[in-house]
Design a protein around this nucleic acid. Structure first.
Lengths: 353, 353
DNA sequence: TTGTAGGCGTTATCAA
DNA sequence: TTGATAACGCCTACAA
């Protein structure tokens, strides 16, 4: 990689800041009249309004949202905190939020934590200090408790948690039914004749991984299979971990019948490693992931996974928040919405054809 | 998909907003003293400062950034406008920006336009009205001119354009050398013995597609091959378009030797369609994309593409902007930085082994 | 229909 | 070291 730097001519700056007072002076009106004209207040002459708007345009007036929000006490702004914006699940969730929030006249302030709890806290503070109307969030992998949220809650800033949520905190929550998703996957694997099914999971303080583990266990127990601790791999979310674990299994000659990973990425690592070693999928080992990342459709064999309706989750989260913001009556209840995810069966787990 | 709704108990709100005046009253100090204490002003007693900070903590005081920014005239906030946050290129560019901007004490306000020029304009207005210190942006596919930027520029809000930039607008620019990237790809295909190479491209008013087309043409001409208009497909950026075009080629029996797509997605559509028809890649048709999306590594055969160093682009854009913000001397020049992208050769174009 | 006055929460200036 | 005052730009009673 190489970088070249060139320079060229520049457009000069006129540094005059136009306010409603400038407009007022120019038009021999009062600032309040300008304010009313610009905000389509009813009590104003039609001609005045148009004159003001025209002049504002000419002078390149830009309303100062800061001042306006400060004065009004609030400003149609919603904060979003998520672990990563480049995860399919989250980016579609954001698209869903936008589709609800923008038409309602709000804007979004998006923060990503990169799975870092300190970043999460400071983003949260930042949003609160910027006086957002509400916050929609999904916690990082490192986050174990929500004490830092409590104080904001008391201040009356509504929070909606989605997907990865914290226990013991009374806010609206929008979830996937991870237990059901994992149960569906595991049951499917069992139906395909796999018996010794292992599970790749993540930090179990996070609801999503705890629930997926639970769903897996439920299906196994239902099939009369005991789940022992050596069947559950806890730090197994990344492609690299998936590769590492499968390599170890191959070396130790302990390959299971099937792998159900709580992450598509570790499932990918497993799949690629098995392929590299010419181990047949789904014949010798079946594979299933979770989240239906776009690449699951492209691997060979295609990877069985679980679709989580992320856009719907985003929409619902946004609707609940806006509902709370716009209903003046203070409600005493929180809602808990849960979406049932959908098993997407592909060849990686289809032993019986 | 199904959704269940439940409700449960709720945590009540204490709706008292704490300001520096509350703190002042409580401590029998003046608001200015509180302000100074909280912002670590030098002219303040150590004990007072600690007392104030402790009390602020106790009362759950949150500084009002709006008020502070309004008063100070500015607020350590940088706006980012991009087409889509879930494109690998852009999400890594953002990661790069964050890595520079956060340590410098700024925050990011991220807006995605979904390739819609109206959304782009309103996001832009919104950022300006929120008095961001500067804006880093990449325009949408629909954007053909930057008139709406000019007025903001005159107001002195610095703008850095990256990747997809507009001509005739004097701002700092950070680019990929798309011409070089496309030239490298095409030359590589030629070296592999492909002759009849077609090009999938996008709207040619966008620098990135115009430049890639140019690079492709340069290499072809250099090899003594004339590029005729039927060799260039203009609306060919999506997977669906890639599929459609290749299907038509197959039906019309006009398959080329190789396809160089300006987008990995249309290259993917082409690749999958060829595979479906059992047309050999790279034997019968060679394929190359652009952007090195993660899936290019996973297709079979792996897809040749071009890595664009998006994180570096993001970092550089951020550095240039911050530099401009923090250098008090007004500079008369804009910089133009260009990164040379890197050809990533995979099997989809490797006819000679 | 328009103007006046005051304040949103903070900080900078000046004085004490 | 601290306090009083004014102002950032806007909005909203209230008065005219």
């Amino acid at each position: 990689m190489q970088s070249i730097v060139q320079v060229y001519y520049f457009c000069p700056v006129e540094n005059k800041k136009v306010t409603i007072h400038q407009l007022a002076a120019k038009l021999n009106l009062s600032a309040s009249t300008i304010s009313r004209a610009l905000s389509d207040h009813p009590r104003i002459g039609k001609e005045t309004r148009e004159l003001v708007k025209r002049t504002a345009e000419e002078l390149n007036y830009k309303p100062n949202t800061l001042a306006s929000n400060l004065r009004k006490g609030k400003g149609k702004l919603i904060g979003v905190i998520i672990p990563r914006i480049n995860r399919n699940f989250f980016s579609y969730a954001i698209a869903g939020m936008e589709s609800v929030i923008n038409p309602a006249g709000y804007s979004l302030m998006i923060c990503q934590t990169n799975e870092n709890v300190e970043t999460e806290k400071s983003s949260f503070e930042n949003l609160i200090n910027n006086r957002v109307d509400g916050i929609i969030m999904s916690v990082s992998i490192q986050t174990t408790n929500g004490d830092y949220l409590q104080r904001a809650l008391k201040q009356g800033v509504p929070i909606v948690q989605f997907d990865r949520v914290l226990p013991n905190i009374d806010v609206d929550k929008v979830l996937n039914d991870n237990l059901s998703g994992a149960y569906q996957v595991t049951k499917h694997l069992l139906e395909q004749g796999y018996r010794n099914i292992v599970h790749f999971t993540g930090p179990l303080h996070l609801n999503i991984y705890a629930d997926r583990l639970e769903g897996y266990k439920n299906a196994m127990i239902e099939a009369g299979i005991e789940v022992t601790s050596d069947m559950v791999f806890e730090n197994a979310l990344t492609r690299e971990e998936g590769e590492r674990i499968v390599n170890e299994m191959i070396a130790a000659n302990t390959l299971p019948d099937a792998i159900f990973a709580a992450s598509d990425f570790s499932a990918l690592g497993a799949l690629l490693t098995l392929k590299k070693h010419k181990i047949e999928i789904p014949g010798r080992v079946g594979i299933a992931g979770f989240a239906n990342e776009p690449f699951t459709e492209l691997t060979e064999p295609g990877m069985t996974s679980v679709e989580q309706h992320s856009e719907e989750l985003g929409k619902t989260s946004a609707r609940i928040l806006i509902d709370r913001l716009e209903s003046n009556t203070k409600r005493e209840l929180c809602s808990l919405v849960s979406f049932k995810p959908k098993l997407i069966i592909r060849e990686s787990s289809l032993r019986k054809k």
